[in-house]
């Protein structure tokens, strides 16, 4: 008798899980159709005006990013009244800060008065359901597998992964990937840095995967790991500031096609507007200038192959 009931309960739940979908709303991929007009807007500002009611909070651009806001992506220090630690994104400083400010301005929002920053944890950025932000900007890499859960903008930064370590470790003098085979490496969770270890380097020891970089640094200083893989600009920051006698050992694959993109709710019409802004910034050199300003000294590292 108990079995009958167990079957009934489990059966109805399984049935629910496997039942036919209702058709999903919204499309996939980077371009979304939307907006009220039938003509494609020419500028980011036009686009934003046409989709004025698609914004979370009308008249304001709501941008999500991680808290704490780490350099060199965000700079300028904290502000009273802001819940962000390390740096206040509203200052528009740091690479992502500057990109955010520029994109907002081109969409017709005055920065920072008409822009609100909200802290968004990594998992929240792709959780299903309506979002608290218009888009998220926190060193998220585009990956095809991620495409179903969110809509991605075009690239705002082509990223290379790099290896950071300290003087005297077994990898400090590495020049090729083969030199890293026996090393114990670490990477932050949820990053393509981890993919580099498991897919490119493929060391004999399992990688150490950390919730946050501070713990990775502690293990590095303890000698429990030999090096950390992170994106190149972050590697420079860590070597300079967080790791004692830190060095950037090298970067991986100068021609990597990995890039950072903003993440939007699926079907958001705003993707198009942001892409227009990014296109403008690339065309007139603004994006390069931002990179020069904030990441100039953070791109020179020997290539490990």
């Amino acid at each position: 008798m108990r079995k009958v009931f167990a079957f009934l309960v489990v059966g109805s739940l399984l049935f629910a899980a496997c039942a036919e979908d209702n058709p999903t709303i919204g499309g996939t991929g980077g371009t979304a159709t939307g907006g009220t007009g039938s003509t494609t807007p020419a500028t980011a500002a036009d686009c934003a005006a046409a989709d004025a009611d698609a914004f979370k909070s009308s008249g304001t651009l709501t941008i999500g990013t991680g808290n704490p806001a780490f350099p060199p992506w965000w700079e300028g220090g904290t502000s009273d009244g802001s819940e962000f630690e390390f740096n206040d994104p509203a200052k528009g400083e740091g690479y992502e800060g500057a990109v955010a400010a520029e994109v907002a301005t081109r969409m017709g929002f005055s920065f920072p008065d008409q822009v609100t920053f909200v802290p968004v944890s990594f998992n929240k950025s792709f959780a299903p359901g309506p979002k608290d932000f218009d888009f998220v900007l926190q060193q998220i890499s585009y990956k095809p597998e991620r495409d179903d859960a969110v809509d991605f903008s075009d690239s705002y930064y082509n990223v290379n992964q790099a290896l950071v370590s300290a003087e005297g470790t077994s990898v400090a003098d590495a020049t090729t990937i083969a030199d890293l085979k026996d090393a114990k490496l670490g990477a932050p969770i949820g990053t393509t840095s981890l993919d580099v270890i498991t897919q490119q380097i493929q060391p004999t020891q399992d990688p150490a995967v950390y919730d946050d970089l501070a713990q990775a640094v502690t293990d590095l200083q303890n000698g429990d790991i030999d090096g950390i893989v992170v994106d190149l600009p972050t590697a420079f920051f860590m070597a300079a500031v967080q790791i004692k006698h830190g060095i950037v050992v090298g970067q991986f694959g100068a021609e990597s096609d990995e890039y950072f993109a903003m993440a939007f709710e699926t079907g958001s019409p705003l993707v198009q507007c942001v892409n227009l802004a990014l296109a403008e910034m690339k065309a007139d050199g603004t994006l390069d200038a931002i990179e020069q300003q904030w990441l100039a000294d953070k791109t020179n590292a020997p290539v490990l192959d």
Binding site: N123, K143, E145, D148, T191
Partner: peptide
């Protein structure tokens, strides 16, 4: 942690 890694890679829970 393995579940977290796969979840982050796929943006899926």
């Amino acid at each position: 942690r393995e579940a977290q890694i796969i979840s982050a890679a796929n943006f899926d829970f």
